[in-house]
Simulated assay, not measured.
Amino acid sequence: MDLFLVFVILGVIVLYLCVVIVRQGTVAVVTVFGKYTRVMTPGLNFKIPFIEFIYRRISIQNRSVELAFQAITADQANVNFKAMLVYSVLSQEEEVIKNVAFKFIDEASFMQALIRTIEGSIRSFVATKRQSEILSLRTEIIEHVKSQIDVLLETWGYHLIDLQLNDIAFDEVIMRSMAQVVASSNLKAAAENEGQALLITKTKAAQAEGNAIQISAEAEKTASQLRGQGVALFREEVAKGMAESARVMNEAKLDASLILFSIWTEAIKHFAENGKGNVLFLDGSTDGMEKTMQQLMAIQKLNNNGDTPPPAKR
């Protein structure tokens, strides 16, 4: 009975040593006495105890690593890079898995080689460019690294999926100088825009002022013409009225000086009402009235005969 129990226990141990469970997303490399023999795929697998050993479990999933390093441009400016690298095993083919398992002594050595290779590729590219060009060459840097690294990684059994340059920064002194350059450019652009706006504003104002002056001049011209026509009509009507009055009084054999006297008194009344304290000197002599009468009679003759009146005596 004790012997049977011993065999059962030994059987369980052997069975336990024979069973190998490989997780999804990984493969297991099996060796026999240190020599590669086969690859175990995900799921339940079996091996020969004490003869076959699991040399290494390899993940075939995507992996990522963050990088932080410094490079120097052609004009001796320090550039600080922060990048993220995404890579994976090239495929599950046997030769690829053998390369992944045996190319490097361990995972740490592979990571060190990968990181240093990428950093060196970026540094060699940046060393040929000037500081002012770096920020605009993000895509070119990534393409340069991929073109150089892909072939090398394939010999190691890996594939570069993505490389992202998350941050490109210069030293603090350079950043301040770049900020000053940008600020100066912005101020220059703002000044130019302000000057253009002021020029446009003044041009529009000058055009508006010129249009206003032109309109005002046209209005003044029209108003002067209308005033002149009004004064001419007024004088014509006054002359007609006075000539008519003189004719009526002449037919009635009355002295025309009565008309002058009436006009004279009306004028004095108007002057008194609207003079506002101003002093006016009027020619109220008989000669002055006579001269006015002669002018009125000439206007009457003009209205009766249609002839041009003789010029007034001075």
Rank of each mutant, 00 (worst) to 15 (best):
L44W: 08
R23T: 15
A223R: 10
F102M: 09
E95D: 13
H159K: 14
L5E: 12
L280C: 04
Y16S: 06
L260N: 02
I200R: 12
A206D: 12
V19S: 02
V151D: 06
M40L: 15
M293S: 04
S88Y: 10
W156L: 06
S147V: 05
K98R: 15
F281T: 12
Q180N: 11
K98P: 10
E52P: 11
N278C: 04
A217M: 00
M175S: 13
E194V: 08
A272W: 01
A267N: 06
P49D: 11
S262F: 00
V29E: 09
E192R: 06
I141E: 05
L152T: 13
I58V: 13
I149T: 12
R138Y: 00
L302A: 11
K202L: 09
Y87C: 04
V145R: 04
L67S: 12
F104S: 11
F53Y: 02
S59C: 07
I142R: 06
L3W: 12
N80W: 04
R23G: 10
T155F: 07
V12A: 08
A256S: 10
L302V: 02
G34R: 05
A179M: 10
E94C: 01
Y36K: 03
I168N: 03
T73A: 14
Q180W: 03
L153E: 03
T73P: 08
F110W: 09
G241P: 00
L67A: 12
E273D: 15
Q214S: 15
Q92R: 11
L17Q: 13
I215C: 01
A28G: 14
S91F: 02
I60H: 09
I213M: 09
I268E: 13
E143F: 01
R116N: 01
I13R: 00
A197D: 06
K253L: 07
M242A: 03
T265Q: 09
A256F: 02
F234L: 12
L160A: 05
A189C: 07
A298Y: 08
Q164G: 05
A197F: 03
I48R: 06
V29C: 05
D162R: 14
A205S: 11
M178R: 01
M293F: 05
P311Q: 13
T37C: 02
A272L: 06
L199E: 11
Q300W: 02
E172R: 11
V100S: 12
I51C: 00
L44A: 06
A190H: 04
T155P: 00
V19R: 05
Q300S: 07
E266S: 14
K313P: 00
A71D: 01
I115K: 13
K103N: 14
E273W: 09
V182A: 07
M175F: 09
K103P: 03
N304C: 03
E143H: 02
V79R: 02
T222W: 04
I115A: 07
R38T: 14
P42E: 05
L226M: 08
A256Q: 12
E119R: 02
E236P: 00
S91E: 07
N80M: 08
P309C: 01
K269W: 11
R227E: 12
